[in-house]
Design a protein around this nucleic acid. Structure first.
Length: 223
DNA sequence: TGCCAGGCCGGGT
DNA sequence: ACCCGGCATGGC
């Protein structure tokens, strides 16, 4: 027996999927690249991250050994376009150190632990918070865990499905309680939410062509 | 031009 | 336990 919440979330998903088509995330070729991208895109437009990733590749630095050796200043200069380049260089380094030291730089080793344990240890790495950890779990590890971001909160608050003050964990469990635990569904759903958010769901609600017709922000209501 | 972008940390209350 | 400033580039 499906609850109202379950039906509503699936309906929204279907509408977004129909509108935008399959997203086939993550936009990265390797598991390492997904992790790097997840850190670089923190509070940053993906277009800025792309340049940084292309710089890293150009210097053959999208590779564990090189990332271990590279000096922090050099790394920062390569990822400049992604913003916060000093903190992000530190964060990349702390992830790389953790990954190399605890898992011998092998993703099979990382993901063979229980997902809760992987999440917990990722969160203990300085610079990796819940969204980055969950992005790594879902998109690099194929773990069925729902990724929450600012768009998710904004959109589903406007749809009155969550409260304004809902925490990351609260929003995540709302989705996971109301959706089947399917990696592919979570993968596409989050990607579609980002797509919607980028193009239609700005902080200042002026969203007339938004495919979610029930969203009150279409009428420029204040939130 | 100011606002915004696929967060997170650390210090202060 | 919350709250807030700091971190920074690039696109519109």
């Amino acid at each position: 027996m499906k609850s109202q919440g379950q039906k509503r979330l699936l309906k929204i998903y279907n509408r977004l999927f129909k509108h935008f088509g399959p997203q086939s995330w993550w936009p990265g070729e390797t598991q390492l690249e997904i992790c790097v991208g997840a850190i670089l895109t923190q509070n940053t437009a993906w277009s800025n991250v792309e340049k940084a990733i292309s710089n890293l590749k150009k210097e053959n630095c999208m590779e564990l050994g090189r990332l271990k050796e590279i000096k922090i200043k050099k790394l920062a200069s390569l990822i400049k376009s992604s913003g916060y380049f000093n903190v992000k260089a530190e964060r990349l380094k702390s992830f790389i150190d953790y990954f190399a030291n605890h898992h011998r730089g092998n993703f099979k080793n990382l993901f063979k632990e229980k997902p809760e344990d992987v999440r917990h240890s990722l969160l203990s790495v300085k610079g990796i918070g819940p969204e980055t950890a969950d992005s790594i779990l879902l998109y690099a590890g194929g773990v069925p865990i729902f990724v929450v971001d600012t768009y998710t909160k904004r959109i589903f608050y406007r749809l009155s499905l969550i409260v304004k003050t809902a925490t990351y964990d609260e929003v995540q469990s709302f989705f996971m309680k109301n959706l089947p635990r399917k990696t592919n569904l979570y993968n596409e759903y989050h990607a579609l939410i980002v797509m919607l958010g980028k193009h239609y769901c700005k902080p200042n609600p002026v969203c007339s062509p938004c495919p979610l017709k029930k969203c009150p922000a279409r009428k420029n209501k204040k939130f």
